[in-house]
Nucleic acid binder design. Structure first.
Lengths: 139, 139
DNA sequence: TTTACGATCTGTAGCAACTACAGGAGCAAG
DNA sequence: CTTGCTCCTGTAGTTGCTACAGATCGTAAA
């Protein structure tokens, strides 16, 4: 009478993949790296998942969409050490990540400016010296 | 009398690394993947580089800074197949890459908006439900 | 019942683009 | 001659998957 007192849903790996949009093999991978707990098994040894696994995997995938690394996500899930992640800790992790994202955006904007400028200067004709190649040659 | 008619400079691997700012091991790696040609060797078997190697490695590093993949760079260097990369081909490759960069920027801006909004909504206090975790849970 | 097809199981190898080590030699200075 | 740096080779680790190979399992039609 412990586990699920409601009629438990039982999903196979392919079902979980479809339910979450996750790649089939990635599920096994996440189990391997400890993001998903080892699920119970059918008599034949097939993995059997429940509603909690769906929620957890959705959380992981959503975090990945937002650019968190698997290490970050381990933290968000409270698998780091002391467990029981506090709201403040999650906020801190998110802010750190936000800074990293902003840094990357700044990087890419600089790159974009250089690329846009160089291609704009290039006619595509057979000119003695190519400004694009020049830009690559001269930092 | 062929190779270098000027007094050739002779750099060891560490010298080339310093001259370009490239990591020492990366030089060997680039040789392995065919971006740098196998250099001549000293009697003892040590790699010996010249001015052309410095130019080529600088070109590679600069391209990497701008986010080109090694595959892209192989193309820019004309190692693909028919060699002799035309200005138009370089321009096309650069524009393709520019589009990819812009797409990535757009991605990151969306991510940034979500992260900024969620952390703004979070006080860091012990509130029943954490809006950051909610945001991760509900796509 | 048999047979076929799909889904699942395991382990392992591959991708990018490096980085870092282990264990052995070379070379210059004190 | 010894110390200490550089260099040599090959290989393993990183991150986040993805894709096989070869075996087994579950189900549905013939």
């Amino acid at each position: 009478m412990s586990d699920d007192h409601k009629r438990a849903i039982a999903l196979r790996r392919g079902d979980l993949a479809k339910a979450t949009g996750c790649n089939l093999e990635t599920i096994r991978y996440y189990e391997g790296v400890g993001l998903l707990p080892p699920p119970s098994r059918s008599v034949a040894g097939h993995r059997v998942y429940g509603a909690e696994d769906v929620r957890r995997l959705r959380f992981i995938l959503r975090s990945r969409e937002l650019g968190f690394s698997l290490k970050d996500i381990r933290g968000l899930l409270g698998l780091g050490s002391g467990s029981l992640v506090s709201c403040a800790e999650v906020k801190a992790a998110t802010e750190t990540h936000l800074n990293a994202v902003r840094a990357k955006i700044a990087d890419l904007l600089r790159i974009e400016a250089v690329l846009a400028e160089t291609t704009a200067r290039c006619s595509g004709e057979h000119i003695p010296e190519c400004p694009v190649l020049d830009a690559l040659r001269n930092p």
